[in-house]
Nucleic acid binder design. Sequence first.
DNA 1: GTGAAAGCGCTAACAA
DNA 2: TTGTTAGCGCTTTCAC
Lengths: 334, 334
Amino acid sequence: MVTLKQLAKELNVSISTVSKALNNSEEIGEETIKRVKELADLYNYKPNKVALSLKQNKTKTIGVIIPDILNHFLAKVLFGIEREAAQYGYNIITCISNESLEKEKDGLQLLANGSVDGFILCVAQETQVKNEIAHFKKTIGQGLPIVMFDRVAHDVLCDKVIVDDFDATYNATKSLLLEGRKNVAFISGIDDLSVGKLRERGYNKAILESSNQLPVALKISKMEDSQLKIKLFFENNKIDGVIAADSASGVISINTAIGFGLHVPKDISVIGFSSKYISNHSIPRLTSIRQHAKDIGANAAQLLIRRLQNKNMSENDVSTRIIKTSLIKSGSTL
Amino acid sequence: MVTLKQLAKELNVSISTVSKALNNSEEIGEETIKRVKELADLYNYKPNKVALSLKQNKTKTIGVIIPDILNHFLAKVLFGIEREAAQYGYNIITCISNESLEKEKDGLQLLANGSVDGFILCVAQETQVKNEIAHFKKTIGQGLPIVMFDRVAHDVLCDKVIVDDFDATYNATKSLLLEGRKNVAFISGIDDLSVGKLRERGYNKAILESSNQLPVALKISKMEDSQLKIKLFFENNKIDGVIAADSASGVISINTAIGFGLHVPKDISVIGFSSKYISNHSIPRLTSIRQHAKDIGANAAQLLIRRLQNKNMSENDVSTRIIKTSLIKSGSTL
DNA sequence: GTGAAAGCGCTAACAA
DNA sequence: TTGTTAGCGCTTTCAC
């Protein structure tokens, strides 16, 4: 990489002249600016990012900590973050916490040494279960803002982007009841997550409001077992509707029903939280609650960048954005 | 963030003493080392990463450029890279090229300014179609090593990690023929990728070696159409076996066959390139060719880090690692 | 055993 | 209009 120093030497001017010329300073003569720029172009000069970061005490880099990159929803949020951040000239450093509190702490620690200007994260499962928040507060205390999305720690004061999980399942359940379904079950592979609980509550509310049925829930802890668990569940319960809290459960429910010789959606309706991609994996396609993951990512990036660029924003002045889901009707409902 | 300067001031010693003490230099007295370390701990001192990078002219950061984070295989490779890199103390900056040549170039450009020590990438679709390689050569010329995985540019001299795509489909096709299948089709949603072509060739070879059938291929260009395309394909061809070049096509093939009242695997067998996660989306589960994506990522990281840590490795001395696939038998084959 | 000083690449206040 | 200098945080050589 060519440096200012080398350019300066070759041009027989001082380093600062070169620097100013490249930054179109008024101080420098037109002729000089031209000469400098030509040589810089020739050598394909690019200012050294590290030196700039050190000088300006900001890195234009965002640390993103996500629990699981193989989760389609989270990957999509990451995509949204990356795209939005790129617009503003920010890079993304990714850490994967693997749902572990320890790795989440490590990620924060490791990047809170000047590597990034702030964080966007989705709280790890273990962290939610243990309800730990000290590491978040410490990071914020060090002057590094955090934006949380989807799974958030309510007791941490920071910007947040969440989904209307409760309303979404409430409305989805209502819509199955309106179809005339009499036995709508809730199937979840994410029972220990905050969003999983919210979704169940939305379902429960809708069911309890209806006159004549009680909530029935299947909780799956290991997703490898889901085919078997769902099969057994169907055998033991007369179900004519399913609200699935995660994408895999929805698809598998449809396939299981078909395996039993049921017609979807005549005999049974299924709604799941799912992306277009995954909902394509069943025939008929899964009617799904879309979370607009990319928007979630974009909003998180906006909130963080806004805060980074307004140094006088108070730590106590935080916003929460709720990204509304959409119910996309497809073949698995009437 | 607390700095050496502040510690030095508070301790009434010089900055260099503090620095040396923290690095356990022999030059410094035991007593001093102890005092320094205690204060450093108290203030939770962490050396500023940016300053270190500038000083040592290396960032301990790897730039990863992938075409599509929503592709489960690529996401898994990223996971493997991240995990392996973390072991060696490297961070990952991710750029998503979105299969675009332009964004791929941008990504390289943007990070080749001191932000990273080297790159791991999977060539974008457009780049493969246009067969552009100048940007790769330029980057390597600047002293930033590249490791390519999966989709590689053969004309670029660099370390590579690839999959035995040809052998994998060849063997998979053979295994269907051994089952006694008479009409094995090839279905691909990735016809324009180098790996897609390799997979087709492996299939073709196996079919042509068998006595009495000819290759039949369905190429799907827009994955949204895949359900319809596969349905039409099944209507117009008497198929009793499918080799799917991508994961979605495999799952959809099974579901389509079941929709036609066929029994899988009695009437028709299906094999696809797929992860455990996706293969779970059909009943029966998809027999699949596993690419060991995490291993691919880990190997790529190893190759890059090895090169970064051996400054005297020649640019012309490159290695290619082939990660063997495994055929995991599941319910969709006999 | 400790400290001063240089230097990584850059910007910007100040001097000329 | 151009150059000198200091300084961002750190390591390291060389003096003391």
